[in-house]
Each structure stands twice: as structure tokens, then as C-alpha cells.
Design a protein around this nucleic acid. Structure first.
Length: 852
RNA sequence: GCCUCUGUGGCGGAAUUGGUAGACGCGACGGAUUCAAAAUCCGUUUCUGGCAACAGAGUGCCGGUUCGAGUCCGGCCAGAGGUACCA
């Protein structure tokens, strides 16, 4: 037996042994017996080609949960697979001439090998990639079902258009308003696209957030705000004079603040409002203005941060509450067509965007809400709008009412006048799923000249992507493929052509959890679903997680998923990013961590010996070169050290900075643990009490603390507890007292506590204890509650809130006893001096505070 | 712009419901062991003043509630994530 642990030799052997025993295969429902099920899922892997440290973190966290659940007696499903469609494969095709499919499957093969080395308790038998025709064929079937159910429709919608490359750009591909490759200013262009009716579930998606008790509050808040349900008023502003054709009833607006109607100073239309488009006919000025507005991309961020610009149409509408008064109608770039009716009334005093716009175009600002405690003669709006509640003034019949009362009163008056009605509005928009790209799931639809757009035949599924495509020119290769499009109409049998749009990759990641549960057996799906613990990045807080919740409901409603709530994930944990220090050479090049070294406290470039500037700690990225290849870490230090490090340094929901020193520390700890197990002799001698009793107590306390820390995702605390426990046992070993039996019992518990974090090392330790099975299959150690309690406690004594001493008291000491002991304490006495004691607060078992 | 989150020593962080701020780790410093080194072990390490005992300050900033605030409330500042075609 060596006194050093060699992870590079031991780890592959344990992984092979686990594989041989098929240890992590989920047990089929029929064979599971009484064991409750636990479905643990990390977010799908995108096969970029290289495993990233972020993946190591994601799967280490998930693996702790999965292994802990298994030890606690659950039948665990812990699958893994590949989110394989998407843009990077097409970019690789364009840059390197490699087919997206070849590129993707090659990457998957490479990453699978890297991943297996982490030693996660994954069930690889369920692995699939979303670009497998079996998977996307099933997805096409789901699409057809949703279509049949009325949850799929087509409508015109905007995309970023690169006028040089003649192609649609993703928001990410628009840099400062220009195409990333061509550099040409992007244009907005309207295309007819496919949509999922997620808004049909808006209320359910919102209200069910309350039932997701094991989701972070922040994610629920973000989703609630994203859905953005608001009660308000939809009303019409009639035109002053002749109305434009088709707008005889006036301009329809939506507002959540009808209490500020008396503060209205203009009405604003979206640049894409139907009236704007109508006015544009024959107006070069409006065309020019719309072109100006279209210069930014289509992302909300770009639109909202663009300078506010407007165009006065010259039209005027009547103020509903001020007879004889009229308001100008403007076109404004900050009014979004996608929200409400695409038109607003503006009260500059009560909305910052309206105010900025009014100041720029010299429009009136009429304050109508007086904040509590302000004087109406002195209160003024200058550069900041007042958006809060208050008392309404300058507002005719609303004067003196609170904001809320005024909202009701104004709505009633508008309804009575027949100008509008109370409505509920949502910020949530329907989900546009069309992509004008090759590497995605083909939309199963057929265009027929006589029948229109019709669903593809089910018998034709999967509608496979053609392999013979070229990427030598921009645009969608499916569109220009010689004969892929050609088909016959499922309805009339005449010549027709296939839809060439593919589905958003978010569709693939919205139901994969169900496919893992079972490819086709709906009963097995029902057994495993919902996912009990989902683990992934916070960046998915809204889009992916909301889409998946929607698809869960939609699949339930078409009979593909038997989960009554439609919620796919009952538990969610969002992890932070992995960051790393950045390095820059003297001549301003980014350097990789491997290219620099620290000598005498200074960073230098290894190749040249030149000094290096160590820069800010940032999210690992290729452009800053501050990435660390986990495979190198694993092949140098072993998987356990890498896992231990990413779990130890930061709470898992926070960002963690990757440091070489941290990994060294993890490797050192590994040896320290091993030395405990390796050094222990066997003994039949009785142990010395109370030293042995201390060891037993600590083992049970530590096990209990680790158990709770894992359950609450405080892995860094569990790690700290393990450190303390190991250090204490080290001391006990060198103390020279006979405690071998107690230690052996403690080490047996420790090996099992260590398993979720360092499974390979734990197996080696388990063998060292003489066990024959796998610790990965061993149950969690039982904790004796009697060993968790102490008889005496140390209580700090404060005088006027400052700590001045401490006393040791029995756990069940009375308040009076504690108070007397506290006052008698010598250290405390010097602070009491001759002052009279006003009050003594005793919090049993916690603290004493004496107020003088 | 908007939504959400985060901010504690030289660094990562710990601190049940408001109750000893700095657990544990990293780094640094000192020591032991060694011919020497690696490895290992022991000790010190929030800041200021002091030989010390000790005293004072201290959880991004400003203010409030409380016997008591890292924790609760109000207002700022800074950074991060998302912003619907990155995944």
C-alpha cells in the first residue's frame, strides 16, 4: 500500500468498475419497488467541441444531488444528452467548409470522452442528440399536434436583415447596428413566420409560479415581470376633424395609468402602427423617419436605448375629459408595436420616456400626481418624472382622489362615455419559432398553391434535413436546395413545396426532459416526470425556462405528457459562472493562463520573460483567452480535485473564480483524506473515553451538517465541514490515545459523506476500510440524534450591545441563573462600574445583553 | 432604457428566525523536519493605536428602526445576468 493516493491511476479503474456494474442505470418503474423516484437533470450540453469549466461546475453540482439522493434510497434518473442544433455549426460550415452534422457529431464524440472522465453518476444509456432524426421527428409530431390544437399560427414579424449578405441576422450578430460579417447597417425586414401561442397560457404560467416552491424567488419574479400582466384601460382618442380611412373610431391606446389622463400632452404611434403605415403612403418624410427608426436592430435593448426620436403627423385627437382641447399625434420610436395596441397617450409628468420626449420636442408637461407631503404650489417636474402614487390634482373631476381611486374613476367615466373598456394586457408575446436556417428541425408544413399552408403527412415524419447542402453563400441552404423542397400536397395531392424554415433551438430544449424519461412509453414518462431537480445557469431564468413550462402544458393538453400541473421542473437551482483572472502582455496581447507564471510576486510571460499585467477577473471567454481546459486539469490532478474545487470555493449560485492555487488546495486535501484512511491500524483494544466519545459526536454532527448542507445547496459549507472533520481526526490520530474503533466508525461515515464530492477517492477509502461493494451504492450513514446535542453552551455577554465577556452555562439553565452569572462576570463588571442596570435581555442559549 | 441579482479581511467566502462578524480554504509571514529541496507538520494573519494587557473602528455609500443590524426599512453607488433570432 502506497502512502500517497494516485488519482490518475485510481480514477479510471473506478469508472470502469462502475460501468461494468452498470451502477447508474435508472431502475425501470416496475422493478423499483418502494423506492421513491428522483429525476435529477442538468441543463443540456451544447456540443461546442470542448468541455468548459462551466460544464464541470454544472454537472458536479447535479452529481452531488444525484449521488446524495441515491444514497438516501431514491431510484435516481440522471441522464445526459446534447442540444445539438444551432448557429455555431453553421458558422463552422461557412468558415471551414465542414458539414454542420459532421462537425456536431465529431464534437459530441470528443466531449463525451471528456465528460466521462468526470465520474458523474450519469445514465448514458438514455443519451441522444437533438439533431438525431428520431428526436426531431418526434418534435415534428409534437408540432403537428400543437398545430391541430390551435397553438401554432403564422403572422408577419420583424427580423434583422443584412442587406449585403442578404441574410437574416440573429440579435447577437448585430454589432452596433451593423452586420457582424458584412459590417453593413442592418435593416428591419418583415417576414411571415411561425408562432406558438404561449400567450394562451399567460395566466396559468403566471399564477402557477406560486406553486414552484423549490424555485429561486428571483427566477419567479423575473418570469412574473416578463409575463407582465397588467390591468388597464383600452380606449380610443377620436380624431379632431376628418379621421383617416379605417380609423373613424379614433386611435386605440392601452394605458395602465388612466389616472394621469388630464396630464396627457400627446398621443404617440409606433413606427409600425397601421396608421403610421397608412400615413407613409405619399409621405417621403414619414418614409425617411421610419427608415431612421429601422436602423437599430430588432432587439428590445437596442430599441429602448436608442435616442428617442419623433415625427409630428399634424393630426390631432380630442382629449376625452377636456372638451374642446386637442392633442397632437406623433410617431415615436420608443412605442413598441408588440405591446398593447402599438399606440399610447403620453403623460410626460408621470413617465420618464414621455418626459424626455416632451422636453426634446417642446411638448407640454402637466403635473397631475402630487407626491404625499408635497405642496401643489411648489411641486415641479424638471428632468425627472414622478411615477409614484399620490394625490391627483390639475385634473377636473379626479382632483383630490388617490392614484388608485382615480384609476377606477377614470375607467368608469371612459366606459360610460363608450370610449373604451377595462382590459388585461400582457407584456408576454407569442413565441416566434421560425428560423431561416439549415441546422435545425424542419418545420413539418407544406405550401400548396391551391390549399395554402397545410400540415405535413404524419407518415412522412421525420422530415429529414438533406445532407447535400452548401454553405458557400449566405442565406438558408434549404431554400436554394435543388429538390428537397419538392413534394406533393397532403390535401389535394398536387405539386407543392416544403416549408424551409426550421425551428428555434429553444423548441428542442423545451421537451427533452420528457424524451429522457422515455422515448415513447408514456407511462414511464409519467413515472419519472416531473424533473425533481433541474440545475443550470441563471441566464436561462426566463426564456428557456418559460418556454419549457409552456411546452410542458401544451404536451399535457395534447396527451403526450401526464403531468397535471404541466410543470416540467418542480425544483430548480441556478448556478453562477466560472470566472478567471485575465492577462495582457507588454505589447497588449491577451495571454492564456498557461502562458504566464508568477515569479517573485510578479506575473511574467513564460516564453519571453517579459512582464505581464494581470487584469480584471471576468467570465471565461475565448476572446479574453482566460479559459482553462478542464481536460488538462483532470489529466493532471484528477477529476475529484476538479470537482472538489468547483464545489468548494463559492456558494454554487454565485460566480466562482478559477485559480490554480485553489486546485492545488483540492489536490492537497485529497492526500490529507487518504492519509487518514491509510494510516489507520485495526484494533481490538477498547477505546479510551472520553476521547472516543468526542470522535463519535463529531462524526454524527458532521454527517448531519453535511446532509443538510447538500439538501440546501450549501456545498461550500459541506466542504468546510469536511475540512474541519478531517483536521479534527488528524489531531485525534496524533493525540496518542487509543481511539481506533471510534475512528474506524467515523471514517466509514466520512467515506460516504465524501462520495458525492470525490467519488473516486471515496471508493478507494471504502476499500481501505475493508468494504467490498461500492461506496457509490452505499446508503447514507445514519445519524444518532442523541449525539447531536451538547450539555453546555457558551453565551456571550454584551453591555449596551458590545461584547464584553462570555459565560459557560448548562443548556437548560434558567433566565435568572444566566442573568446572575452574566452580571457577576469579572470582565462584564468593569463595564458596569457604578452605573445602574436599566434592563437585561437574555436570549436562552444565544446571548445576554445588559443595558445601562 | 427596463427587469432581476450581487457587494463582508490581501483573496474565495462563513454567520439558523435580527443575537460572539471573519468558520473553512487560498495566499502571506514565522518556525519544525531535511545536507538541501519537494512533501508534510506547528504557529501568526480584519484595520488603527499600544511592548503588552487592552482600547477604538469595521460587512459598498448615506440615513432609519431596534436592547442589539452583514441580516429589516428608505435613498444612492458600483458590478453581473436577461432583454424574446447566442445557447
Amino acid at each position: 500500500m502506497s502512502d500517497r493516493y494516485d488519482p490518475l491511476a485510481a480514477e479510471p479503474q473506478w469508472r470502469a468498475a462502475w460501468d461494468d456494474a452498470d451502477l447508474f442505470r435508472a431502475i425501470p418503474p416496475a422493478e423499483a419497488g418502494d423506492a421513491p423516484k428522483a429525476y435529477v437533470l442538468e441543463m443540456f450540453l451544447y456540443p461546442s467541441g470542448r468541455m468548459h469549466v462551466g460544464h464541470v461546475r454544472n454537472y458536479s453540482i447535479g452529481d452531488v444531488v444525484a449521488r446524495h439522493k441515491k444514497a438516501k434510497g431514491f431510484n435516481v434518473l440522471h441522464p445526459v444528452g446534447w442540444d445539438a442544433f444551432g448557429m455555431p455549426a453553421e458558422n463552422a460550415a461557412m468558415e471551414r467548409g465542414v458539414h454542420p452534422g459532421t462537425w456536431t457529431y465529431k464534437n459530441i464524440d470528443a466531449m463525451r470522452e471528456q465528460f466521462k472522465k468526470l465520474g458523474c453518476s450519469l445514465d448514458w444509456s438514455r443519451e441522444f442528440a437533438t439533431c438525431d432524426p428520431e428526436y426531431y421527428g418526434e418534435q415534428q409530431r409534437i408540432f403537428l399536434k400543437l398545430w391541430e390544437k390551435g397553438l401554432v399560427y403564422r403572422k408577419a414579424s420583424k427580423v434583422n436583415w443584412d442587406p449585403v449578405d442578404q441574410t437574416v441576422l440573429a440579435n447577437e450578430q448585430v454589432i452596433d447596428g451593423c452586420g457582424w460579417r458584412s459590417g453593413a447597417p442592418v435593416e428591419q425586414r418583415e417576414l411571415t413566420q411561425w408562432f406558438f401561442k404561449i400567450t394562451e397560457y399567460a395566466d396559468d404560467l403566471l399564477e402557477s409560479l406560486d406553486t414552484l416552491e423549490r424555485w429561486p424567488d428571483k427566477v419567479r419574479t423575473m418570469q412574473a415581470n416578463w409575463i407582465g400582466r397588467s390591468e388597464g384601460l383600452q380606449m380610443r382618442f377620436p380624431f379632431d376633424g376628418d379621421a383617416p380611412a379605417g380609423f373613424e373610431d379614433g386611435i386605440e391606446i392601452f394605458t395602465t395609468r388612466p389616472d394621469t389622463l388630464f396630464g396627457a400632452s400627446f398621443v404617440a404611434l409606433s413606427p409600425d402602427h397601421p396608421l403610421t403605415l397608412q400615413l407613409e403612403e405619399g409621405s417621403p418624410e414619414i418614409s425617411a423617419f421610419r427608415a431612421e427608426c429601422a436602423k437599430v436592430g430588432v432587439s428590445e435593448e437596442a430599441i429602448e436605448t436608442a435616442d428617442k426620436i419623433g415625427f409630428d403627423t399634424g393630426l390631432r385627437v380630442e382629449h376625452p375629459f377636456k372638451p374642446g382641447e386637442t392633442l397632437p399625434v406623433w410617431i415615436a420610436n420608443f412605442v413598441l408595436m408588440g405591446y398593447g395596441t402599438g399606440a399610447i397617450f403620453a403623460c410626460p409628468a408621470g413617465d420618464q420616456r414621455d418626459l424626455d420626449f416632451a422636453r426634446k420636442y417642446k411638448l407640454p408637461v402637466i403635473p397631475v400626481v402630487l407626491p404625499d407631503g408635497e405642496d401643489s404650489t411648489e411641486f415641479e417636474i424638471r428632468t425627472e418624472a414622478y411615477v409614484g402614487p399620490g394625490t391627483i390634482y390639475n385634473s377636473g373631476f379626479l382632483d383630490g382622489l388617490s392614484s388608485n381611486e382615480a384609476i377606477t374613476a377614470a375607467i368608469n367615466r371612459i366606459e360610460d362615455a363608450g370610449l373604451g373598456e377595462r382590459t388585461t394586457n400582457y407584456r408576454l408575446r407569442d413565441w416566434g419559432v421560425s428560423r431561416q436556417r439549415y441546422w435545425g428541425c424542419p418545420i413539418p408544413a407544406v405550401h400548396c398553391a391551391s390549399c395554402g399552408v397545410v400540415p405535413a403527412r404524419e407518415a412522412d415524419l421525420p422530415i429529414r434535413l438533406p445532407d447535400d447542402v452548401s454553405f458557400d453563400q449566405p442565406g438558408n441552404p434549404l431554400e436554394r436546395h435543388a429538390d428537397w423542397k419538392k413534394t406533393t400536397c397532403p390535401k389535394c395531392g398536387g405539386d407543392a413545396h416544403r416549408e424551409t424554415d426550421t425551428l428555434d433551438t429553444f423548441v428542442c430544449s423545451s421537451w427533452y426532459y420528457a424524451r429522457f424519461a422515455s422515448p415513447d412509453d408514456l407511462e414511464e414518462r409519467a413515472y419519472w416526470m416531473p424533473v425533481d431537480q433541474y440545475v443550470g445557469g441563471i441566464e436561462h431564468a426566463v426564456l428557456h425556462l418559460l418556454y419549457a413550462r409552456f411546452v410542458g402544458r401544451a404536451m399535457r393538453d395534447v396527451g403526450l405528457l401526464d403531468v397535471s400541473s404541466g410543470e416540467p421542473f418542480t425544483g430548480l437551482f441556478t448556478q453562477g459562472m466560472v470566472t478567471h483572472e485575465t492577462y495582457k502582455s507588454a505589447d497588449d496581447r491577451w495571454l492564456e493562463p498557461g502562458e504566464v507564471d508568477r515569479r517573485d510576486g510578479k506575473w511574467i510571460e513564460v516564453a519571453s520573460g517579459e512582464p505581464v499585467t494581470a487584469g480584471p477577473i471576468e467570465k471565461m471567454s475565448k476572446s479574453k483567452k482566460n479559459t482553462v481546459d478542464p481536460e488538462i486539469i483532470v489529466s493532471t490532478y484528477g477529476a475529484d480535485a476538479a470537482r472538489w474545487f468547483v464545489l468548494s470555493d463559492s456558494p454554487p449560485e454565485r460566480d466562482v473564480e478559477w485559480t490554480q492555487a485553489g486546485v492545488d488546495g483540492a489536490a492537497r486535501f485529497q492526500q490529507r483524506v487518504w492519509s487518514l484512511f491509510a494510516a489507520l491500524p485495526s484494533s481490538t483494544e477498547p477505546d479510551d473515553e472520553p476521547a472516543a466519545s468526542e470522535i463519535r459526536k463529531l462524526a454524527h454532527k458532521s454527517t448531519d451538517a453535511i446532509d443538510r448542507a447538500i439538501a440546501e445547496f450549501r456545498f461550500n459549507s459541506a466542504v468546510a465541514t469536511l475540512y474541519e472533520w478531517v483536521n479534527a481526526l488528524k489531531k485525534a490520530q496524533s493525540a496518542g490515545k487509543q481511539t481506533v474503533n471510534a475512528q474506524t466508525e467515523a471514517l466509514s461515515m466520512m467515506a460516504r459523506c465524501l462520495t458525492p464530492f470525490m467519488p473516486h477517492l471515496a471508493e478507494s477509502c471504502w476499500r481501505q476500510l475493508g468494504e467490498s461493494g461500492f461506496v457509490s451504492a452505499a446508503p447514507w450513514p445514519d445519524v444518532d440524534p442523541a449525539l447531536l446535542v451538547d450539555d453546555a453552551v457558551t453565551m456571550p455577554i454584551q453591555v449596551n450591545g458590545k461584547r464584553r465577556g462570555e459565560i459557560n452555562v448548562a443548556k437548560d439553565a434558567s433566565k435568572d441563573e444566566v442573568e446572575a452569572l452574566a452580571i457577576a462576570d469579572a470582565g462584564v463588571q468593569s463595564f458596569l462600574a457604578d452605573k445602574a442596570i436599566k434592563k437585561v435581555i437574555v436570549v436562552p442559549g444565544r446571548i445576554v445583553n445588559i443595558v445601562v
